[in-house]
Nucleic acid binder design. Structure first.
Lengths: 231, 231
DNA sequence: GTTTGCCGTAAAGATGATGTTAAGAAGTGA
DNA sequence: TCACTTCTTAACATCATCTTTACGGCAAAC
């Protein structure tokens, strides 16, 4: 599986496709070329490109039509590359959902820069970082804790404490380490505060705090959280 | 609700500013003009435009420097309008975070189309441009907020604040992040203003502001809005 | 069986953060 | 200019949270 950014080039002139795809590959993009509009629409779906470079003048269906069909279901950035310089054509293309419009001839450096700009615009759909075990779910991006689908309200310190344990689930964290991490090194010795906060957390997420399912006490050492089921 | 889309025009040639701002106002945008780079940076924070049109040739500080300073804290779409046609200048500007680059002379229709395209980019979070949850509906394109079908009047700042939360619904936005996004980095520390505005918003959209349904407080952190039912 | 040390729980005061209101400043349009 | 809305600041009341204190239970050690 390659992690290269994928670009779909829809263009019927083989001289141009060769030139552009060589340039793109030299910049570490993965390129696929479509020589017709229909092929372009089809590849937009199957190839799942991160950017589409689209020529307006195509042999079978019009570039506008390609734009329309792709935009019907996808928001992938589309950069129009065209020899047509008429303003009305630019306006039409942009309002149909194109993200940029470059007129031939253009420099490769500019094309590369505009591709980078388009990529910035497309929000990378990174899946959220989540801890999951039994009925408990912690979404770190949303700062959300759920138990059997119900939102659980935690205070600031409680949340810090729980996420610290969750991020090290399966491992024992010593009292000293936890105290240092959350209260800093200038806190008075002793872990009364830690015990109180742990009791509050357990009251919120454990059915029976006396027999915890998620956070276990290692007497004399520290706490350990049930291992994350994700990986 | 008459919350026009705001555009900041940074350009020192008065002939051009007059021409462009007339055109923009004819298209129902609200325009503010900065004749120098410093003024542009300052207005970017205080005026909170939805789009910035930036000329590269300015009397005091360079257009690139304006770009850099605004990008240090804001993601507002920036369209470069320049007489410089050199490819390297385009590349520099785009890589500094500009969203588009138009060379003079250009047609107003194209400028309008590129502004519309930029505005599309600044709303990437909501798939169909509508937030909906319970009885609340926010139409980002119409800039309309409805509660049980009734139009709700919000001030500029209230609208910005609510849409910021709606675009990130389900996740916590910190006070600092909200302050930076809406009031810019030059605002005095503290979030009194934020609290007052939130109280005003709640008075308008919540049945009982003391027990909010839509916008929740994460004490010590920030605010979180009820997750969008779309998606 | 008793003692000792460790842990969990409850309650209460102190602390700090938030919600609310009102008044003045600044901006807007007629 | 005036009337009007909106923005900002300040003061205050309220509430949640944090921390400390006190106490009971439990298990291991003597």
């Amino acid at each position: 599986m390659s992690t290269k950014i994928k670009i779909l080039l829809v263009e019927d002139d083989r001289n141009i496709t060769n030139f552009i795809s060589t340039t793109l590959e030299g910049n570490d993009y993965k390129v696929t070329t479509a020589l017709t509009g229909r092929e372009g629409v089809s590849l937009a779906a199957s190839f799942c490109p991160d950017v589409i470079l689209l020529d307006l003048g195509l042999p079978d269906i019009d570039g506008y039509e390609v734009l329309r069909q792709v935009r019907a279901w996808s928001r992938v950035p589309i950069i129009i590359i065209s020899a047509r310089t008429k303003e009305s054509e630019k306006v039409t293309a942009l309002d149909l959902g194109a993200d940029d419009y470059i007129t031939k001839p253009f420099g490769t450096a500019e094309l590369m820069a505009r591709i980078r700009t388009s990529l910035r615009h497309s929000r990378p759909a990174t899946p959220d970082h989540i801890y999951r075990a039994l009925n408990l779910e912690i979404n770190f991006e949303k700062r959300q804790v759920r138990l059997s689908g119900e939102d659980i309200h935690l205070t600031q310190i409680e949340y810090q404490l729980l996420t610290l344990l969750a991020e090290n689930s399966g491992r024992v964290l010593t009292y000293g380490h936890i105290m240092n991490t959350i209260w800093g090194p200038y806190m008075d010795a002793g872990n009364q505060i830690l015990r109180v906060n742990m009791a509050n957390i357990r009251r919120k997420i454990e059915k029976n705090p006396a027999q915890p399912q998620y956070v276990f006490t290692e007497i004399g050492i520290g706490y350990r959280m049930l291992e994350n089921e994700n990986v």
